[in-house]
């Protein structure tokens, strides 16, 4: 039973890491896109005409595809005034409760986001730009990131219930 959990947990951690790695690639592409725009406008009197739109999508992609890995690595900030003072037992209970709240809140958002993505897809809504991007694509990326986050919270809280260690918050610098 526990080994099955550990295997599934490893897969979920892997999913989160891959999503974040994709976000790093997006970060690099965003940088290159902006640099291209600067060079085109300054030296060739022209424009990509998609920079504003795609850099925006890029930012949203980074935020939500990075979210799951951020939870895993303890990079997602929380106020630790209460948590930091609890003993190991109560702390574990509190962590499970916060995970439960996070799961419910995010599941609520995910439900309505998926309705939106479905409608964007069936309507064929596009952006009114030169790229005429189908809106469902960037929205679906955000939705994917939210699902990855849900997956992490689910396995983390399950792990807490069967005695797996707490996530360590990102370390203080020395």
């Amino acid at each position: 039973m526990h080994t099955l959990y550990d295997r599934l947990d490893r897969i979920s951690a892997w999913v989160a890491r891959v999503a974040a790695q994709f976000a790093v690639v997006v970060l690099a592409c965003t940088t290159l896109l902006i640099l291209t725009e600067i060079v085109l406008r300054s030296f060739f009197a022209t424009s990509t005409n998609i920079t504003e739109e795609y850099v925006g999508y890029g930012l949203g992609t980074m935020v939500f595809l990075g979210l799951g890995h951020a939870v895993r690595t303890g990079s997602l900030v929380r106020v630790d005034i209460v948590l930091g003072r609890l003993g190991p037992g109560p702390r574990r209970v509190m962590e499970v409760l916060t995970c439960l709240v996070a799961f419910v809140v995010m599941a609520f958002v995910v439900y309505y986001m998926s309705i939106r993505v479905g409608r964007d897809f069936s309507r064929g809504t596009i952006s009114t730009t030169l790229a005429a991007t189908p809106i469902w694509i960037p929205n679906a990326v955000v939705l994917t990131g939210m699902l990855v986050f849900l997956l992490q919270v689910f396995f983390y809280s399950l792990g807490l219930l069967i005695g797996r260690p707490l996530i360590k918050e990102a370390e203080s610098i020395e």
Binding site: R41, A45, T46, S47, N49, I50, T51, E52, T128, T129, L130
Partner: peptide, 17 residues
């Protein structure tokens, strides 16, 4: 917008978004 971008580019300006 898209129309103004295309029109001004077509008329010889360096239109940017």
């Amino acid at each position: 917008d898209l129309n103004s971008l295309n029109t001004f580019t077509g008329a010889g300006a360096a239109a940017v978004n």
